[in-house]
Amino acid sequence: MSEAPFVEVRDLRRVFDVSKPWLNRVLENAPRQYLKAVDGVSFDIARGETFALVGESGSGKSTVARMVVGLLPPSDGTVAIAGVSMNDVDVAQERQRLRRRIQMIFQDPYASLNPRWRVGRIIAEPIRAFQIVEGEAAINNRVGELLTLVGLHPDDRSKFPHEFSGGQRQRIAIARALASNAEFIVCDEPTSALDVSVQAQILNLMRDLQERLGLTYLFISHNLAVVRHMATRIGVMYLGRLVEISDGKQLFSNPRHPYTRMLLDAVPDLAMTGKARDGVKGEIPNPISPPCGCTFHPRCPLVFDRCRIETPPVIDGVACHAVNEGRVAAA
């Protein structure tokens, strides 16, 4: 695609202060401690595409999601939607205009809907906040449309969230995200709290909606199979860094970074091809004191001296010295 990317994330960083309280630091003579949750992440998302971030716990993928939607201010770096960055807009009105275009779907459908609000009010809230349509009747109409769009009944508006199952609640959450006519939706593990059969319903719904409304998704997940099913492009994260960005199909047919390979190898195999699995070693290190150099080096089968000292930059979609030096044949 030659046009400017719809979503542009540049060198995003986020540091959390995880120091002990002041008194403890003084008494125990402990230094301040920082956690680099996200450490220089850059990617683009084209309009209408699904970009997935995949990684294990502590990889920083959810932190990226929260920074992209503006729930968490980045320590450094920028997020721009259609060329407009959150950092650039000072006027409240402008900011609101940008917010309208970005919405989010959360992991836990049991916590993402206010339990004391009726569904109709929940979905109407963004419509009122962004003044999408005016007048009670029009708002009501729109809520009904949205509920139908996500496969629920317009009459469901008068119920409370607890009257719905997890999958139905996630539909409500999707309806709320669409209520502001958002174009870009950040989905943070949208199906990992759901059962497989319900997950299939939600994933299919999300794909249908993407086709119908031309939505752009940033899809966060730890589940490689789900990511494969949804994403056009995929970024693999490890300890706050992107280690590989690749075309959706290619990542699975031709994984390049050793971590990606390990991850793919570790996924339980439903097809039961009986593949050998010996590549999985060790566990994710403590992100407060990550290994120096390439953070993956203690677990990497291809490690050599340079990996322990120098952090590999992302070159041609892979952040790995071994791959860049051509010491690994692209399988």
Binding site: L71, R99, F106, D108, A173
Partner: peptide, 26 residues
């Protein structure tokens, strides 16, 4: 820390409306 509060912040609600409309009833 429940995400429905995040959802309310996402549509640009200020702290007070979030506290009174979302947190208080709960």
């Amino acid at each position: 820390n429940k995400v429905y509060v995040d959802a309310a912040r996402l549509i640009g609600l200020k702290a007070w409306p979030v506290m009174l409309k979302h947190v208080l009833p709960n």
